[in-house]
Amino acid sequence: MISEGRVWTFGDEINTDLIIPGRYLDNYDPSHLAKHAMEGASREFAAGVRPGDIIVAGRNFGCGSSREQAVTALKSAGVSAVVAKSFARIFYRNAINLGMPVLESQEAQSSFSDGDRAVIDLDLGCLSSMDGLKKTYLKEVPPNAKKILASGGLVPYLRQKTDGQRKTQ
């Protein structure tokens, strides 16, 4: 699995109210959510983000509410993966369940800059710049999360499981 795009860097403690404020949550349409993605943290992000772009952030990314719309907003805005020093646990689960890779790296935030063109190779477990000058290894995704991610999220994962059960019956 490969993600490719430009890097958007953010700091520590990017909470779900910054990713998608509560005042936008009465409309569940993903394209509506995308228009306000990261609104509390960056004025440029929602308008400037392109499909494939990668968020690189600090500690405790996604802390706060359990709102899954935080992941939906980023994903439908085009974000292909989030790399952070650490993730809040509910955001982490939500991202895996919606098939968006979330990867831990202690170094990425300090070595990558806004606008860097970068690529994530999930099989190799690394984030590298397209010019080959920067490279950082990513912590391995736990096996159970990896399975769900490889299926594309919890829904396809459960479908595959039930289809498999039907076949064996």
């Binding site: 509410s65 359990s66 992941v71 509910i90 689960r93 939500n94 369940n97 919890l154 829904v155």
Partner: peptide, 25 residues
């Protein structure tokens, strides 16, 4: 499917928050 599900630990239950897709699962 709310982050403050931890609240019910007050009555000796283990309460954990999850997201909506997790809950659907």
């Amino acid at each position: 499917s709310d982050s403050h599900t931890t609240t019910i630990g007050a009555v000796g239950a283990f309460g954990a928050g999850i997201g909506a897709t997790d809950m659907a699962g």
